[in-house]
């Protein structure tokens, strides 16, 4: 019973955080809202007995990634006058929301079709580092290996786009 209540609380906080992310004007406020969403998502993972994902969500996303984002915003040192004037932003927001109504309606229909399953506590090892590691390195070897290529491409790309370029050789 109280699992459902906890889920509702986390879900509501997550939605409130993402609304704040979109609606606040200053990037720093938006970033803090994003942190709130990340933490409440970690709560939902914990409810699903996904222990390792819960930890990673807190350490990597709510911790490292958010710290990085906040640092970047601080480096940029944005003031009120640096922010672009968005006079018609609410018109765009409402327009976008209207366009999304059919999609949302469709999503609600899909969600309603999911059969209700009673919550039950899954096995002891579920979601632990050992169990997850075993699945990851046996069944899911290919995605795990090609993720390394993805990170490499990102790294090279970041150097190319932001790094110092040597003068052309000719």
């Amino acid at each position: 019973m109280y699992i459902d209540t906890l889920f509702s609380i986390f879900a509501l906080i997550a939605i409130a955080g993402s609304l704040g992310l979109v609606l606040f004007r200053h990037p720093m406020q938006s970033a803090l809202c994003l942190a709130v969403t990340m933490i409440s998502l970690a709560g939902i993972y914990a409810l699903l007995s996904a222990k390792l994902i819960f930890l990673l969500q807190l350490i990597v996303y709510a911790g490292a990634v958010m710290a990085m984002i906040v640092f970047i915003i601080m480096f940029l040192n944005l003031r009120e006058k640096d922010l672009p004037e968005e006079r018609e932003r609410f018109t765009y927001l409402i327009g976008g929301a209207v366009l999304l109504i059919p999609v949302a309606w469709f999503m609600i229909k899909v969600m309603k079709s999911i059969p209700g399953v009673k919550n039950s506590i899954v096995g002891n090892g579920f979601g632990s580092i050992k169990e997850l590691g075993q699945v990851l390195f046996t069944n899911w070897l290919v995605p795990f290996e090609i993720i390394s290529l993805l990170l490499l491409v990102t790294l090279v790309g970041a150097v190319v786009l932001a790094g110092i370029r040597r003068e052309s050789n000719d």
């Binding site: 290919v142 995605p143 090609i146 290529l149 993805l150 491409v153 790309g157």
Partner: peptide
């Protein structure tokens, strides 16, 4: 590499990662 992986992918998560390898390289 991303494109070839994408056309070989027989699983959705693999396909997604391949798609992103390809797209990220193309963005740059």
């Amino acid at each position: 590499v991303g494109m070839v992986l994408l056309s070989m992918a027989r699983e959705l998560i693999t396909a997604f990662i391949a798609l992103e390898i390809m797209s990220l390289a193309i963005y740059v």
